[in-house]
Design a protein around this nucleic acid. Structure first.
Lengths: 254, 254
DNA sequence: TAGCTTTATGTATTCCTTACATATTCACTA
DNA sequence: TAGTGAATATGTAAGGAATACATAAAGCTA
């Protein structure tokens, strides 16, 4: 079978070129249709979904490797990318089960050690700029609603859960919206984003007041038409003020 | 030379028994004499100091390995231990320089790869319960004032800096004092701890008010005598309330 | 033009944060 | 034993932030 052969070659290349026993898993968050989304890959010839991931070249910084993997998957070069946890349990998942699900060839001749430690990164991307791209290991790459993920391969459900928890904590420190929204957005959109991440409803009057008080967004004259209702104003982040406030640590949000 | 022989054997054992290319570095914080301290080791027959660290057995969880390493260094079994960052730069330090400083034997026959990724943990310990213990690689193990660290081996100054930054952020989320102070402590002691970690002075009236408002400490009838001044009351953490508040996320501190 | 949907917005209350100064206690010593 | 010095304990007023809450306006559709 052609694909199996390819896999074998890939494994050989990884063993030769990459740091052994270490991997990277990326949780790529996007926001669309008032929902927080995660980018998942479907493995070739299966119905099994998992996170995009990869390996680290022998002389490559782990951060750079994560960036490279993300770029391959999303086509985006500049994005918010952050290491959030390293998963080092001795048994992270049932290897036999995975091997079977993915029809992996016999890997007993590999140099790869018995267990893999994985470094988790999460990325926040502007949904509208992403072109989800499957690779030669996978048939499909698409966004999934974070609340409705299927059962994932490896320990990837756990990894997503930890990433989400980290994102929630970070939200109270920095306006994550900057990275998840397109350049122009409406106040209700921003509010939905916060509501989705925090998983609770917010009062629109208080929310608007608070976000505007932070002093990092500005209202444009433009409005977005299109619905059978009052047109919302468009806003955008003021990058300078945003970064200044970040440095001064004035961005707590509760 | 006996020590070199020992080192060689140690390296061989590590290669055989441990996950290759991965290490753990621990930043152990203690509080004493109104200062935040870090536990450092002096390598045998040198004046070079570094963080306690070690390697992960092939079938050992990384968290467990960190715990094991800490226990060896401090004698404490139960402590607050948290992974805070994985250091994966491709060039973390000048290997030749280190090898020379520590008079390492020729390591070219080792299986160990060219670069090591290190997982950083920090621990908060009750200074009074620790028995700093050097191992066979080191001559001395002692506390250093966090503000007055010498130039450390490897990238350990950087690792301490990242740990400290993490600790500062965490302080606004949970009362770190619980892990760093002895069972009974005075309000001024608690205040010094916060001042040290936050690196700024706090108002004693407001501090006392705020800490007591959190509802997780209780004042004892006891006072601590001994100085030529009014005796301070002793307090202790109420573990149940502390954990309840942690779960409810009511412990922000700014 | 009536109706439906979503947006935009202000005020009163409570809570939290900050700023700030003095009286008390203990040990030491003269 | 009275006086001194050092650190502790404590309350109040003012300003700012968070919360709770309801209605009018705008755009589209029928």
């Amino acid at each position: 079978m052609n694909y199996k052969k390819q896999l074998e070659e890939y494994f050989n290349e990884v063993d030769a070129r990459c740091v052994l026993g270490l991997s990277i898993d990326c949780v790529i968050f996007g926001f669309y249709d008032n929902q927080l989304k995660v980018l998942l890959l479907r493995w070739k010839q299966t119905e099994e979904w998992g996170l995009p991931g990869g390996f680290i070249y022998k002389n490559e910084s782990v951060d750079v490797a994560a960036q490279r993997i993300l770029e391959e998957r999303t086509g985006i070069k500049e994005l918010f990318l952050q290491q959030f946890h390293t998963f080092g349990e001795d048994v992270r998942y049932n290897r036999q089960e995975i091997s079977q699900k993915l029809s992996w060839p016999d890997t007993s001749s590999r140099q790869w050690p018995d267990r893999t430690v994985s470094i988790g990164y999460f990325a926040l991307v502007d949904f509208s700029k992403v072109a989800p791209t499957a690779d030669f290991l996978t048939d499909e790459c698409r966004w999934w609603d974070v609340e409705k993920l299927p059962s994932l391969l490896f320990d990837h459900n756990h990894i997503v859960a930890v990433a989400l928890r980290t994102l929630r904590v970070q939200l109270s420190w920095q306006p994550v919206g900057y990275n998840l929204l397109p350049e122009k957005f409406t106040m209700p959109e921003l509010q939905r984003l916060y509501e989705t991440i925090l998983n609770r409803p917010l009062d629109p009057r208080n929310f608007s007041k608070k976000m505007r008080a932070l002093g990092i967004i500005e209202r444009l004259e433009e409005q977005r038409k299109g619905g059978a209702f009052k047109s919302p104003y468009l806003f955008r982040f003021n990058k300078e003020k945003y970064e200044k406030a970040l440095q001064e640590g004035n961005l707590a949000f509760s």
